[in-house]
């Protein structure tokens, strides 16, 4: 079942750019990092349902666990 974007509960303004609380703080370090964020990746994620975003996260977890297993079991290379 597809799930669309989260909908605000309690107060309609809580999830908009105009929300006065909490304010976004100006922070040069964060702004420097923002310049390097891959927006295309986030734009692609925003097109997914919330469920697909979670599935993607779990697939990545499985991938990392498998890489770590492979790393643990790695043996030194020997000339054939």
């Amino acid at each position: 079942m597809g799930v669309q974007s989260p909908q605000p509960i309690w107060n309609e303004g809580s999830a908009t750019m105009d929300d006065p609380l909490p304010p976004t703080v100006s922070d040069p370090v964060v702004e420097a990092y923002m310049a390097d964020i891959d927006r295309t990746l986030l734009q692609a994620n925003l097109k997914l349902s919330v469920e697909d975003r979670i599935r993607q996260l779990q697939k990545f977890q499985e991938f990392v666990v498998e890489l770590q297993r492979a790393g643990r079991e790695a043996k030194p290379w020997k000339h054939p």
């Binding site: 989260p6 309690w10 809580s14 609380l21």
Partner: peptide, 12 residues
């Protein structure tokens, strides 16, 4: 946190 929460239905 409630006033800053979104209601979702995820995986039903």
């Amino acid at each position: 946190l409630l006033p800053h929460s979104l209601r979702l239905e995820v995986f039903g």
